[in-house]
Amino acid sequence: MPALSIPTVASGDVTPVLSLQGIHKAFGAIVAVERFDLDIFAGEVVALVGDNGAGKSTLVKIIAGFHPPSAGRVLIDGAEVTMSDPSDSQALGIQVVYQDLALADNQPVYMNMFLGKELVKGPLRRLDRKRMVAETETLVKQLDVRIPSAKATIRDLSGGQRQGVAIARATHWATKLVLMDEPTAALGVAETAKVEKIIETLKARNLPILLISHSLDQVFRLSDRICVLRRGKQIGIRETAKTDNNEIVSMITGLST
């Protein structure tokens, strides 16, 4: 283990939902993540912060099964998993709000909501569009995502509405862990508040959340712990209640304030 202090909110005998051990990722000569260790426990929000290019999205894609790590282990509920494809993380109940949202622009909202998990009916296993539309309508209403209709095409939605769809999809399918890569980046004040409320609801469902955000105010409002990454290096993890803005900023930038 590196010389990092890794405080946890939970007591020692609780198994973390997600445990990253010695994760290293290089793209050719570029080292995106040098060495990363983190345990995330049920019902906690861990914020991952760092400047542009620090390696945050790369970590998310490793946990999602998009990239295999160059070295290191990923454990879910204490058992090591090797993911060769995002379908593996999906099967484990891990859901991701990607930075680029990962929506199919020419498909309707309801198809995006059920992408890869489409509902079918009857012996011919026909797509059950009616039910997918109905469930989508209910879901977006519950989450207060304002879209014209579940049948609207993604291309015709605003940036914030798209973000809402991506978040609704992730929250709908998550049973184990939610990763959110800058979920409020494109949102206005009211929409941001809604997303923060959603995150709190997820937390109340005892789901662990890894939240990436450039807004430190938001990070301090929502997180239990803050993990700082700088140019691929894990600088440290702090309990949110026991740190302050200045410390985190100096960890992010590497300059003392």
Partner: peptide
């Protein structure tokens, strides 16, 4: 009317998004 057809659409629309959803 089938899931396969929906997947063909998704792959051509946004292959990364299709892969992300499994």
């Amino acid at each position: 009317e089938t899931r396969y057809g929906a997947h063909v659409h998704a792959v051509g629309d946004n292959a990364r998004a299709a892969r992300a959803t499994g």
